[in-house]
């Protein structure tokens, strides 16, 4: 090293008085006061029927109904997701037949209310009494008699899932469109096929845009399951608690029971969404993770020591 002036002493770290926010504190106090008043009122108001609430919150019929609701949500969402990806990919594909079919699907399933669709699926066994596999006007190889099966659970899933697919397809299409064109060009230039580009390059990047609204859809699906009474399927959370309340003439506590279960399930789903979002946002930020920062700091001090 050449002769250099001794470096000046490093400046002291800043120790400033942080900004005060008195109005935030005032607002918080007022709000807590109001909430306290409401809670006091609710606890002392007999109309809420808290004893009944406690009695039925973990009633076996209710927890079974919650489980049915979860199953409906899961299968309908899975159907919606898979079908949604297929419809979105069809819509974007260069093949005009596929894109027209997908457009027709969206037109029908987004254009009619889900309740109407569910009633329709409930009537499906009346319209199509048998499913036959065979040659039209010729011999039959296989036959399924729909009227003899109790398939309202399946029909509820199909009804919810097909409707959901239309919305998921639009969400996925928006996500795919958000990926810059350069990504497609780079993949094409590397000799990747259209489908491979979708699968390996475009869809993983689109996930970041797709996941937040999909989380919304999932939560919305959980609540939409309360409509399947239209099929009619009656063993899910809302219809079950309503049926119980009709017998004991106490609608309010059982509504609160249903609301509590919905809220609990939604909260769990939100935690899952947080972790999914974190996973698919990798590579987006320039900000380094704690681990990477530590490695860099180590390299820095290591280099300094090497110089000395």
């Amino acid at each position: 090293m050449n002769e250099e002036q001794a470096p000046p002493a490093p400046p002291a770290a800043i120790d400033a008085v942080s900004l005060r926010h008195p109005w935030r504190w005032a607002g918080a106090v007022v709000l807590i006061g109001l909430v306290g008043l409401f809670l006091y009122g609710a606890a002392t108001n007999p109309a809420y029927g808290w004893a009944t609430y406690r009695k039925y919150l973990f009633d076996q019929r209710v927890s079974e109904a919650a489980w049915n609701t979860l199953q409906l949500t899961f299968w309908a969402m899975l159907l919606g997701l898979v079908l949604g990806v297929i419809i979105a990919v069809m819509r974007l594909s260069p093949n005009p037949i596929l894109s027209t079919v997908s457009w027709l699907y969206l037109w029908i399933f987004r254009g009619t209310p889900v309740y109407v669709q569910l009633v329709f699926w409930g009537l499906f066994p009346t319209i199509y009494q048998k499913i036959q596999v065979g040659v039209p006007f010729g011999p039959t190889f296989f036959q399924l008699n729909l009227r003899e099966l109790s398939i309202s659970f399946i029909l509820a899933i199909v009804g919810l899932g097909l409707n959901e697919a239309a919305y998921m397809a639009e969400i996925i299409r928006a996500g795919v469109s958000s990926v810059p064109e350069g990504q497609l060009e780079a993949s094409t230039a590397l000799g990747m096929s259209w489908w491979m580009t979708m699968r390996r390059v475009v869809l993983p990047q689109a996930m970041r845009v797709i996941i937040p609204p999909t989380g919304n859809e999932l939560i919305s699906m959980l609540k939409t399951t309360s409509l399947v009474t239209a099929v009619p399927y009656t063993l899910e959370l809302y219809t079950r608690t309503r049926d119980i309340s009709a017998v004991i003439f106490e609608p309010i506590p059982l509504l609160l029971v249903a609301a509590t279960w919905y809220l609990a399930i939604t909260s769990v789903l939100m935690v899952g969404q947080y972790y999914l979002e974190r996973y698919f946002s990798r590579g987006v930020s320039r900000r380094l993770t704690t681990k990477q920062l530590e490695a860099l700091a180590e390299a820095q001090t290591g280099a300094k020591e090497g110089h000395l």
Partner: peptide, 15 residues
């Protein structure tokens, strides 16, 4: 496959 291309805006896969 046999022709490599390098773009003005790199177009690396960010994920």
């Amino acid at each position: 496959r046999d022709v490599g291309m390098v773009f003005q805006h790199f177009n690396l896969f960010p994920h």
